[in-house]
Amino acid sequence: MDWSKENELLVIPLLLGCFAVWWLMPSAKKRPRIVGVLAGLAACIMIQGMLLPQAGDYIRSVLFFVFAAAAVISAGLMITDRNPVYSALWFALVTLSVCGLFLLNAAPFLSAATIIVYAGAIIVTFLFVIMLAQQAGTATSYDQQPIQPLMATVVGFILLGVLLFTLQEWGAIDGTSTNEHAEPRQFIAVPAEIQPNPLSQAPHDNPHEIGSLRVLGRSLFGDYLFAVEIAGTVLLIATIGAIAIAPRRAQGTL
């Protein structure tokens, strides 16, 4: 009982959001969309107290709200749109908005790399596949309804809940890495002041250099060397696998 009381701020909006997404999913029966939209709005308003950054520079706040709202709305539209092509395009918008948030958090390289890799290559590949499968203007019922809307929504929101819960705990323990004046039931998505990663081995002589390419390189190939090398190895194996699977020209498939 104690636990649920402490975390009702987290649980109730999650349940509401789960309901909203399930309601908005395309289905055979026509449901009034406004119910889902209102539930989703209520969930966002309830949880905003935990996620909003401290009031700072007004340009920064405006940008944060624009990017955050764009990300949440496009994410909702991405999973509830009937047309797979539009879903892929909403996915691209989600990526772009999140990249904007990365930029606000002084991570320009992460932001640019995400745009190049996700928006510029991966979603383009999705679009390729979808567009080859269906021509514009043809009214087919193909791929227009989710197969297991309820399970997918519930599992997705359980994952989101676990993530938020962990973030909350982490924000409360390690106050220095997010915000010095963290209130107990709050974690800050956007730190008002940019601070170096406290666990980093890389030298941070100049506070203006945080987020620059030099510090990023030091951090990647110093603090996270093994993770980077393992990720590189996995990618190499995947590349070799893809080349091995791809049909040979001699087999007459190209």
Partner: peptide
């Protein structure tokens, strides 16, 4: 812009 080149490619 510290990452001008990467920005252009993005």
């Amino acid at each position: 812009v510290d990452l001008g080149l990467v920005f252009i490619f993005a």
